[in-house]
């Protein structure tokens, strides 16, 4: 069958592609939103399906009311958790990048420290944390150390990999032009390691939050912490299930926001030149 269109440069195939693009533009927002709304409705229906279930599985509205009521207390706890998360992340970035630079600079340093970095990484933080709580007295420092241990490895390993994958011809070029150690680091190695570093940061951001939460759990009621994890524990002892849900949803939101922020950073710094941030032109 012969296809006829009024515009010979815009054939049926192209028309279909344009239609798909329009659908995609709407669906990108509409589908996730619909899923969230549906989840809330199913949640509501489930918790009201039997009279008893609502006691231990509170309906969304109850959680919301508890959230509003406990607002001041929950946000105070959020600030505690956020402070630990970001402090740990900051130290992880500084320490991870500095150690990565040291590793690529000195093979000996890598041989000395790398086993420790791996051991710290592969040992579950829940099993190290009680020890840390025995030896470190300062309430902020002990939680911070836990969060840092978890967050620091992806930064270290990714940045090390990035610093090592500098183009060898570019290294030769810098040598021929007599570049100093600092020039090579600042103008060549750090920029070529930046996509790897930003990838590590995305992982480390989420892990710093997990580390902070785990540390709070281990600290438990006896600890002086009053972060969101502490609120969940405390609420569970008091059988205050709506508050548990409210605190849990806040932690999840913080995780999502951290992920979105690090993704944005990555896009922002790489958008001009790196494959990962470029939109394919077809």
């Amino acid at each position: 069958m012969l296809m006829t269109t009024s515009d010979p440069t815009f054939d049926a195939d192209e028309a279909r592609r344009a239609r798909n693009r329009r659908i995609e533009a709407v669906a990108r927002w509409a589908v996730p939103l619909a899923v969230v709304i549906a989840t809330v409705f199913i949640w509501h229906w489930w918790s009201n399906s039997t009279p008893q279930r609502g006691m231990i599985f509170p309906e969304p509205l109850k959680v919301w009311h508890r959230f509003i009521k406990d607002n001041a207390m929950l946000f105070g706890s959020l600030m505690v958790t956020l402070r630990i998360t970001f402090l740990a992340l900051a130290i992880a970035i500084i320490g991870g990048v500095a150690l990565a630079i040291l590793f690529t600079q000195s093979r000996l340093a890598e041989l000395i420290f790398f086993p420790y970095a791996v051991i710290l990484q592969v040992t579950p933080i829940v099993s190290i944390a009680p020890l840390i709580f025995i030896y470190v007295q300062d309430p902020l420092a002990r939680v911070l150390i836990c969060a840092w241990i978890v967050a620091f490895f992806p930064i270290l390993s990714n940045t090390t990999l990035g610093l090592k994958s500098t183009d060898s011809n570019l290294r030769d070029l810098y040598d021929i032009y007599g570049a100093t150690w600092w020039q090579k680091l600042l103008f060549l190695k750090l920029p070529s390691a930046s996509p790897y570093f930003l990838g590590g940061l995305q992982i480390a951001g989420g892990l710093a939050l997990i580390g902070a939460i785990v540390a709070e759990y281990v600290a438990g009621i006896s600890g002086s912490g009053s972060g969101l994890a502490f609120r969940i524990l405390e609420a569970s002892y008091r059988l205050n299930y709506p508050r548990m849900f409210a605190a849990l949803l806040m932690i999840a939101s913080v995780g999502v926001i951290i992920f979105a922020a690090t993704s944005f950073l990555s896009w922002f710094f790489l958008r001009k030149w790196h494959e990962s941030a470029l939109r394919r032109e077809t």
Binding site: D167, N169, L170, D172, L173, Y174, Y177, G178, A179, Q183, F187, L188, P191, S192, S194, K272, W273, H274
Partner: peptide
């Protein structure tokens, strides 16, 4: 070199600047 060996994160002008910059 056989490869253009440009820094992908820098513009054309900034790449040509390299020998001066160093």
């Amino acid at each position: 070199f056989q490869e253009p060996t440009l820094m992908p994160w820098a513009t054309v002008a900034k790449n040509v600047w390299l020998p001066f910059r160093l």
